[in-house]
Design a protein around this nucleic acid. Structure first.
Length: 292
DNA sequence: TTAAATGTTTAAAT
DNA sequence: CATTTAAACATTTA
């Protein structure tokens, strides 16, 4: 699911499963979901071996031995599920948008792309809303591709001082800045709301009006919640499955996201929902006093 | 029936 | 030209 920690969970999981294996075949039912020419697919995908799996912001990069890379973007509802069946056992790993496709039999009606691997394993790309995509691109040109070129520094690793510099002259709302991947890459709607609540900042506050110390606090809180969520992604819950296939709520950590009407865990005031930066926004009206 | 949903991307407005 | 805002994409679920 389509925020940095979930993408990271996908990457960490697939990195243990894919490298060394060959891609034999691909099948897709929606042409926007798999973007490559037939010729490139035959030349650079079929028979190629997976070298590595990595992440750039919220894009998953699967590097192949042919010098090409499968770039995968899950957008709002994408997920990647790896299934390897043998006579006696089934190895299963999946992460992304938390719905039942992670646990059910595949392919199902949300399956857009299927990759067949040389060891009888399958990699499924499921995406209810069809916003996501898989693209086969030359590895060397990835840095020039527009959707990766314009990204700001990764939210997980950006230094505090750089973070402050990037934000202090922006005139749009702090929430719009957090969601703007060209400023800082990797934050999404959930973590924007959570980190702003932690920092006691109202999402509609103009970034330029926020003090240096508050920005430093926001930087620290954002990295904290992202890291915490990555750790949670490693445990068994509904947006992550493994052989045990356990369920749970991946939003256990959330203090405001989708908690409208429930009490703020800090002061007890009711969490409210509004719209900021044209996205659903959750705040504690007491802790995060409105900007002027 | 209407509203909302984890994210870009593009066009239009400032 | 750079920045900011809003609509679009496609579908399901509450």
């Amino acid at each position: 699911m389509p925020e940095l920690p979930e993408v990271e969970t996908v990457v960490l999981g697939l990195r243990r499963l894919l490298p060394g294996h060959q891609v034999i075949r691909v099948k897709f039912d929606w042409d926007k979901s798999y973007q490559s020419s037939q010729a490139d697919t035959e030349r650079f995908l079929f028979g190629s071996k997976v070298i590595d799996v990595r992440r750039k912001a919220k894009t998953i990069l699967i590097d192949l031995s042919t010098g090409y890379t499968l770039a995968v973007h899950l957008k709002m509802t994408g997920q990647l599920v790896y299934v390897k069946k043998s006579n006696k056992s089934e190895q299963l790993f999946g992460a992304g948008h938390p719905n039942d496709s992670l646990l059910g039999d595949l392919p199902d009606k949300t399956t857009r792309v299927e990759f067949e691997l040389d060891d009888h394993a399958m990699l499924y790309f499921n995406d209810v809303r069809k916003f996501g995509w898989v693209r086969l691109l030359p590895t060397a040109t990835l840095e020039d591709v527009d959707f990766l070129k314009k990204l700001g520094p990764d939210a997980l690793s950006v230094r505090s001082s750089d973070f402050v510099e990037l934000f202090k002259k922006r005139r749009k709302s702090i929430k719009a800045c957090l969601l703007d991947q060209t400023i800082v890459a990797g934050c999404g709607n959930i973590y924007a709301d959570e980190s702003l609540w932690m920092t006691k900042l109202h999402p509609a506050t103009q970034a330029a009006k926020i003090s240096r110390s508050k920005l430093e606090e926001l930087h620290s809180n954002l990295q904290e919640v992202l890291n915490l969520s990555i750790e949670k992604g490693g445990s068994s819950n509904k947006n992550y499955i493994n052989a045990e296939g356990g369920t749970g709520s991946y939003l256990d950590f959330a203090n405001v996201y989708q908690r409208a009407g429930m009490p703020c865990s800090r002061c007890g005031t009711e969490i409210i929902r509004s719209v900021v930066a044209s996205r659903g926004t959750h705040t504690c009206p007491d802790c995060q006093r409105k900007k002027v």
